[in-house]
Write a protein that binds this DNA or RNA. Sequence first.
DNA 1: CTGTCTATTGACATTTTGTCATTAGTTGCC
DNA 2: GGCAACTAATGACAAAATGTCAATAGACAG
Lengths: 104, 104
Amino acid sequence: MLEAILMMYLRRGAAHGYDLAARLTECGFVGLNPGLVYRALRGMEDLGWIRSAWDGEASHGPPRRVYSLAPPGEQAMEDLVRGFREIRGLIDKVIAAYEQQAGC
Amino acid sequence: MLEAILMMYLRRGAAHGYDLAARLTECGFVGLNPGLVYRALRGMEDLGWIRSAWDGEASHGPPRRVYSLAPPGEQAMEDLVRGFREIRGLIDKVIAAYEQQAGC
DNA sequence: CTGTCTATTGACATTTTGTCATTAGTTGCC
DNA sequence: GGCAACTAATGACAAAATGTCAATAGACAG
């Protein structure tokens, strides 16, 4: 989930972790401290979904790592979305079973 | 998820673990070996959501434990369903963001 | 030169999930 | 009687996911 959201953000342009973490909290995703975001980013980089490089631009702080979406990431995003649709189908099934007290 | 489905089944009547596991596979829920079902059942019993008793009826096998829904389980089921709706909302949000390339 | 904000990393604990062997009773076959 | 197959439940262990939080460190304001 977190990974999917981060890739959605990256698809709109490269960004660094701290920014992404801030955007998440702005957008109302709670309980996601920066550590989780950084871990997710590193994990996705290990998988080849995203790339990173140290930012050459002068920042008002320590050096920062800029992440951008890599081609395998586009594919991964599609797969994730497909998985989400499946999960949504399952949830619908369970909710329907709850309301109608029937079905599988 | 598994817990919710099991409670849905139990709402329709008491049953024992092996039966529930079989019903799950019948209904197309894959990757759920009996061990997972038994563990989920014991966990829910610890939470007071369900109750169990050894089956008095003669069975064609070893003694079996019959589970039934307890009143706190009804409440828990409602809470679970509410949670599912929330997750569903999140998924919708992410899928929409993926398709329209906009939003949070 | 101290505190604060930005930025990333790493260590550790907890929880969840998956796998699989073990125990054990019943039934049916030879 | 002995043995295999099926039913039924439990427990131990490993792996993966998640959560928490301290440590490091550059830049800037006072």
